[in-house]
């Protein structure tokens, strides 16, 4: 089969945008931007968004959405902080308050989506508010700090020159890339995203899969919550507000189709890195505040439009 422009664009288009932006920035501000330290910073600063974006990628892959990831991040970060502040063992607190709670919140979303047959947009729009409200309630709207020093040192520390959040994000990315590419589960999710009815009639348990994608989403947001709390050494009641839009934008810039069935983890990771890179660049160039949103918006619209044009333009070949 002839591998045309479209073929390569689908696989490497996002990476191309990333490299292009790196080059542009390198020309503008080589001494600061391309320093090893700054490149590591871009990865570190993107780690939380990478984690949530990997999670939200799954609901989008089945033509759904998860708007609650920002709140899941806030709630898991807050609960794990409260558990630690109440003397729980750190690892147990992170497992229960972060990972398991995140997965559980995802399970709630997924179960509701399957049971009500409503679009995930509606369910997660609601659960987003519920989770945020819970976070405010249990924290009394006050930040929780004075966490064990070991916590930040471990989760937000370094292994050699590499920050632990980056290692966590990359590990999660590799695991989920494996899940999507090499497991029946992954194949089933793509089938469900491509054509739910065909997958159902082929004997794929689409109902269970729908729950699973939201569990993945919650799980990743939970891990992001841990990383965020560790980086700050504190849990803020409003932490993660609005982060879902960055995560969704990352998935979309990374080539994930809103109509389902198309996209991959690698693209999503690069998409999240692009957003991190842009934020970093805006700071370094000291771009005026009001301009920043315009730049970010243009990036999202531009990359998706480019994607469309290239995909369509080469269709006839």
């Amino acid at each position: 089969m002839k591998k045309d422009l479209r073929y390569y664009w689908q696989r490497l288009g996002t990476l191309a945008i990333f490299v292009l932006l790196m080059i542009i920035m390198g020309i503008f501000s080589p001494q600061y931007f391309l320093s090893r330290n700054n490149i590591i910073q871009i990865f570190l600063q993107s780690s939380i968004n990478v984690l949530i974006a990997i999670g939200v990628f799954f609901p989008i892959l089945i033509a759904g959405i998860d708007l609650s990831v920002g709140s899941v991040l806030g709630l898991t970060g807050m609960v794990s902080a409260l558990l630690m502040a109440n003397g729980w063992d750190m690892w147990l607190a992170l497992l229960v308050g972060g990972v398991l709670l995140g997965a559980f919140l995802g399970l709630l979303n997924g179960t509701l989506v399957v049971a009500t047959k409503l679009h995930p947009f509606i369910i997660t729009l609601g659960s987003n508010m519920i989770f945020r409200g819970l976070t405010l309630t249990i924290s009394d709207a006050r930040p929780v700090y004075n966490l064990p020093r070991q916590f930040s040192r471990t989760i937000a520390g370094y292994v050699g020159a590499i920050p632990v959040p980056v290692i966590i994000a990359i590990s999660v990315a590799i695991i989920f890339a494996f899940v999507t590419k090499k497991t029946k589960l992954g194949r089933g999710i793509y089938a469900l995203g491509g054509n739910e009815e065909a997958a159902w009639l082929s004997g794929i348990n689409t109902k269970l899969l729908k729950v699973v994608v939201f569990v993945f989403s919650g799980l990743c947001a939970g891990m992001a919550g841990i990383v965020m709390t560790a980086r700050m050494g504190a849990a803020e009641p409003l932490a993660g507000t609005g982060y879902e839009s960055y995560a969704i934008a990352s998935a979309i810039i990374g080539g994930t189709s809103f109509f389902g069935g198309i996209g991959n983890i690698f693209g999503v990771v690069v998409g999240a890195l692009i957003i991190g890179l842009i934020n970093n660049a805006l700071n370094i160039l000291n771009v005026q505040t009001y301009m920043q949103q315009i730049v970010m918006g243009l990036l999202i619209v531009g990359s998706v439009t480019l994607d469309r044009l290239l995909a369509r333009g080469s269709k006839g070949e």
Partner: peptide, 15 residues
């Protein structure tokens, strides 16, 4: 946002 402030401050300090 606290995390964003951490990132922004780090970037400014590096610059």
């Amino acid at each position: 946002d606290r995390t964003q402030a951490l990132n922004v401050a780090t970037n400014i300090l590096n610059r």
